[in-house]
Computed example of a mutant assay.
Amino acid sequence: MSILLILALVVAMGAVLYALVRGVIAMANGKDVSGEVQQGYMQKRVLYQGIAIVIVVLLLVVAKSNGS
């Protein structure tokens, strides 16, 4: 179970990194005057970070239950 959660955490962290890099590239491009593209990527980044935090909490719960 913990291996699966660790893999899910790595995927979530990769998604955070991807959204962050794409948002910065969209901002650096300067083509999107309204900022909607960057805003969309940053909202996705926050969502992926929230998912990663939930996975970390689940990992901690699993580790505590296995240790008791």
Rank of each mutant, 00 (worst) to 15 (best):
I3H: 07
L5Q: 10
L5G: 03
L5S: 10
I6W: 08
L7N: 14
L7V: 02
A8Y: 03
A8S: 09
L9W: 03
L9K: 10
V10M: 04
A12W: 03
M13T: 05
M13L: 14
A15C: 14
V16Y: 07
Y18D: 11
A19I: 00
A19K: 02
V21W: 13
R22W: 15
R22D: 15
G23L: 01
G23M: 03
G23D: 08
V24N: 03
V24F: 04
V24K: 04
A26D: 09
A28T: 05
A28C: 06
A28E: 06
A28G: 02
N29L: 12
G30K: 01
G30S: 05
K31A: 05
D32M: 01
D32Y: 12
V33P: 07
S34R: 03
Q38N: 02
Q39Y: 08
G40Q: 08
G40F: 02
Y41H: 15
M42C: 00
M42F: 14
Q43M: 12
V46K: 12
L47T: 11
G50H: 05
G50N: 06
G50F: 10
I51W: 05
I51H: 04
I51M: 09
A52G: 13
I53L: 15
I53M: 14
V54M: 07
V54E: 01
V56Y: 00
V56N: 00
V57K: 06
V57M: 15
L58H: 03
L60D: 10
L60E: 11
L60Q: 09
V61F: 13
V62I: 05
A63R: 07
K64H: 12
K64S: 14
S65G: 01
S65A: 15
N66H: 10
